[in-house]
Each structure stands twice: as C-alpha cells, then as structure tokens.
C-alpha cells in the first residue's frame, strides 16, 4: 500500500514537472518569437531550477532548446514577408565574425565588468525605443 502511494506521488510529481516544463517552454517560445530573441533569458534559469543543470550546461543546452523554436519563428517571419535579404547577408556576416571573437574572448574577459556594460547598453536601447 505504502509502495503504491509513493508510486502515485512519484507519478504525480513527474506529471507536475512535465506540465511546468511545457508551460515554461510556452513562455520561452512566445517571447522568442514575439521579440525575435531573448528566449535564453527564461530558458537558462528554467534549465537551472527545474532540471537542475549547472550553469555551463544550462547555457549550452538552452541553445539547443531555442534552436527549433527560432527555426519555426523564422519560417513565420519569412512567410509573412518580414525579412529582406540584403541587410540579412551583411548583418549576418558581422554576427558570424563577432560571434567567433566573442566565444574566444569569453575565456579572457572579466564577466562582471562586461555584464554591467551590457546592462547599461540594454537599458539605453530600451529607453530609446520606448520614447
């Protein structure tokens, strides 16, 4: 009887965790699609808190989670004619170059200073877009 009960609670816990994962996935997908990015901001903490992954693994896994979501979102953006090809090529080329440099710099730069600069730039951008 006791064994049965624990089995039932385990089953319930499992179900609860799945529901939480699906719901948070929905939030990640919506934000990432609506804002064209930023899904990682919710995905990384989700992986850390719910799936109990360490920081490094969470960051790496988040990319793999967001990839299919972005793929779908891209399809919608293209289908609705929101993307033109010329700026895509030039900006995309830059992103690729910068991305490679950034990944290398990750090992050298002090994260706290970069974080604060990053936060200031984001705040400035956010305020500028709002007004």
């Amino acid at each position: 009887m006791k064994k049965n009960l624990s089995f039932a609670t385990k089953k319930f816990k499992n179900f609860k965790e799945k529901s939480i994962l699906i719901a948070l996935g929905g939030v990640i997908g919506f934000l990432n699609g609506f804002f064209g990015g930023g899904g990682g901001m919710v995905c990384v903490p989700t992986l850390e808190k719910v799936l109990k992954l360490d920081n490094k693994r969470s960051h790496a896994t988040a990319i793999a989670v967001i990839f299919p979501l972005s793929l779908i979102s891209c399809a919608v953006y293209i289908f609705k004619g929101a993307i033109s090809s010329l700026p895509l090529l030039t900006v995309g080329l830059g992103v690729l170059l910068g991305g490679i440099v950034g990944s290398i710099a990750l090992k050298v730069l002090p994260s706290k200073v970069v974080r604060i600069i990053f936060a200031f730039v984001m705040l400035a951008g956010g305020v500028r877009l709002l007004i």
Partner: peptide
C-alpha cells in the same frame, strides 16, 4: 520545453 515552445513560438 521544446513541445510547449514550438506551439507558442508560432503564436508569438
């Protein structure tokens, strides 16, 4: 996560 995400990604 991906299951929930894909559905809402379309909506978003």
């Amino acid at each position: 996560i991906i299951l929930g995400g894909v559905i809402f990604a379309v909506g978003g």
